[in-house]
Design a protein around this nucleic acid. Structure first.
Lengths: 252, 252
DNA sequence: AAAAATGTTTAGGTTACCCTAAATATCCGC
DNA sequence: GCGGATATTTAGGGTAACCTAAACATTTTT
């Protein structure tokens, strides 16, 4: 009945929707400034785009209050997110990209790839449910389970946690986290926290491991799950490298 | 010394350059109208774009006379062509696309893929030198050997020719040619030509084969090479399906 | 060689995005 | 509950790409 042939969205529009989705996920309606920051665009430009998106019923906009995705907007955002994350998996698993190098490539391809291409890639990968950074991959029909994870910045001294996901935007930071051994699947114990938002000292590793220190800023980009008494055995199908820590990723 | 970091070209600009390259390849300088036809854009818009391209030193433009690519323009066109053709190979060989379905996908991806991605795909394919439709793939440094091929429309009755390349723009037509058995590598004998640009009757096949008829319009999109006494044995590295005819491509 | 047909360019307009600067609304501390 | 800080929107501009209609140049026909 419905399923009105959705007019194709421009690349900027898809980027806005993704950004709004991500901001909404954290908390309240997305504010103009937050969106502007995230997309590195002036707030004035965001205001203009919000009007256009609202006209297209992709968001609802209460002036001075922020915006929320509508059903259609959410669907579009999840579609883009699916593309992005499948592309990341594919680039790493099939074409040998590094963990920290996929984001930008996927960012461009996600706007150009057809649904057919994405589904062929997904099939080829065995329909993964999370990307290499631990982010869940929405299904074709727009379902995601966004696990409400805490971040490493919020973990208490003495706690043992399992890294589940890291923010993937910044290649530099990702490379640094990889050096520290902090990637999805890694086990971390919080040894110490310096006061006044000082560095957090960690033990990274399963049995053998190392001591590392990390700033609160970076720690806030690492999502973790408390390591329960009996860890969940039901694991997601995912890209290699996104789960259990592996002995050697780089041969150096 | 030179190698000035080329500013990235927009997708439309890349499309114009490709079109001009292709038109120039046939014959004289590309005319405004030809470019407009090929890109399905109004001649007035083409005029405007020609001004911009000339400013950027990608073409030289003699008003009312047509345009020619400069060195830089040619280089850019070949870069895009390389991307397009490698993508087509990759989509067919690795992701299972059909012969007739790759063009549009490649057309979009060629503007978004990084050089790194293209080279990874090329490596994965063993650096092919022609695409699935028989078109030569320019090298990374912008070299191509454009074999000066004749078309099936220009072949004489009684001649035996080898199909080397077909135009890949139109999926419909490609599908039809595939049905006829006309693909790169196929052997064809011209049995008859009806007068007044009437249909051409062909024998398609190596030893066993079939009789088929084809209009002059379509025949002009099929590039052939006379089957010499001793056929060249030095064959190009290429995508499967782009060469020697294979028993079954589709299982139907 | 003038008229007709064809091909090309200019003139003027539209849309989607972006920007800076200025105006305006909301929030927060006192 | 007022005044300043902060957040948001409006006003006014810019660019790239497209369009149609009209003007102009070239080629072809008679």
């Amino acid at each position: 009945m419905s399923a009105a042939a959705t007019p194709p969205l421009s690349a900027p529009v898809e980027d806005y929707l993704k950004a709004i989705y991500d901001l909404e996920r954290i908390g309240a309606p997305a504010s103009t400034n937050d969106i502007a920051d995230r997309l590195a665009i002036s707030p004035a430009s965001v205001s203009g785009m919000m009007r256009r998106l609202a006209e297209q019923r992709l968001i609802t906009h209460e002036p001075y209050r922020g915006v929320r995705l509508t059903g259609a907007g959410r669907k579009a955002a999840l579609r883009t997110l699916r593309r992005h994350r499948i592309l990341e998996c594919y680039l790493i698993e099939v074409l040998g990209y590094e963990w920290d190098g996929v984001h930008d490539e996927a960012e461009r391809l996600e706007h150009a790839a057809s649904d057919e291409l994405i589904e062929r890639m997904a099939a080829r990968l065995g329909n993964p449910t999370q990307d290499p950074h631990g982010a869940p991959i929405p299904t074709r029909d727009g379902r995601v389970e966004e696990a409400p994870l805490r971040t490493l910045a919020g973990a208490a001294v003495g706690e043992r946690v399992r890294v589940r996901r890291v923010q993937d935007e910044d290649a530099e930071r990702l490379r640094y986290l990889a050096e520290l051994g902090i990637r999805p699947g890694a086990l971390v114990r919080i040894l110490d926290r310096a006061p006044y938002d000082g560095p957090i000292t960690l033990w990274v590793g399963e049995n053998t491991g190392t001591t590392r220190a990390i700033g609160v800023g970076l720690a806030a980009e690492v999502f973790v799950e408390p390591r329960g008494p009996e860890e969940r055995t039901e694991r997601n199908v995912s890209c290699p490298g996104s789960d259990e820590p592996r002995a050697t990723r780089r041969s150096t």
